[in-house]
Design a binder for these strands. Structure first.
Length: 204
DNA sequence: AAGTTCGTCAACCGCGCAGAT
DNA sequence: TATCTGCGCGGTTGACGAACT
């Protein structure tokens, strides 16, 4: 049996939120809090799914959410944390009060990546471009700062393959550093690989 | 001035995890 | 133990305005 959709999509509104919808959601949540996101739209009188309401609230309507560009200090923090954690946007966001994972992710993709490239730093590995290497196959376990249960650790060890991030292909192409398909015969973004590649081929 | 391309960012989608039954 | 349900996360899309030709 397939997974049920998060909500019945028939008759539900999608796309940008109107001021009126925002008002309804804020009024409801401030008065009642949220016991269960699935029930929120119905109770608040909105034709949205619960997921959409949660996203709108956490990213834009929450009273403590900070708007506007990231300061240079915040940016530095994001870069440092990204180096340690990778694309764990929610973890990174938790270190920056008032910032959301979505905002940080967008800022990273549109501003920071570009800045790093200009500085000659490869944004995925945080290493100089000329030393660009395929990212080591870190498992979630390795990326997480905290430890896990021994069983979990064992399971993670078994996972010798990790997903190649789709951004990899984009980044590499943008910087005209293309990898030869030495590590796999038909490797594309989203595929899986095990082990490390050999050498990159540079295109001018 | 009009058309096209690029950059930004709000919002959606699908998946994985955890708790409940 | 297996299945169901809801939430949260990360990747991706698409609308829209700005910049460029």
């Amino acid at each position: 049996m397939g997974r049920q959709p998060c909500c019945d999509k028939v008759g539900l509104k999608k796309g940008p939120w109107t001021a009126e919808e925002d008002q309804k959601l804020v009024t409801f949540l401030l008065a009642n809090g949220h016991c269960c996101w699935r029930a929120v739209p119905k109770l608040a009188g909105l034709l949205r799914c619960g997921k959409s309401c949660r996203l709108r609230w956490t990213n834009y309507l929450r009273p403590d959410v900070k708007r506007g560009l990231l300061s240079s200090e915040e940016e530095r923090t994001v870069i440092d944390l990204h180096e340690q954690l990778g694309n764990r946007w929610s973890k990174i966001a938790s270190q920056l009060p008032g910032r959301t994972d979505n905002e940080i992710k967008n800022h990273w993709n549109t501003h920071i990546k570009k800045k790093l490239r200009k500085m000659g730093i490869y944004p995925v590995t945080h290493k100089p471009l000329h030393q660009a290497r395929f990212p080591p196959p870190l498992t979630r376990q390795e990326q997480d700062t905290g430890g896990g249960s021994p069983e979990k650790e064992e399971k993670e060890k078994e996972k010798a393959v990790v997903a190649i991030p789709q951004t990899w292909a984009q980044d590499v192409c943008a910087d005209k550093v293309l990898w030869t398909p030495l590590y796999t015969s038909s490797c594309t973004a989203g595929d899986h690989y095990s082990g490390l590649p050999t050498t990159p081929r540079l295109f001018s």
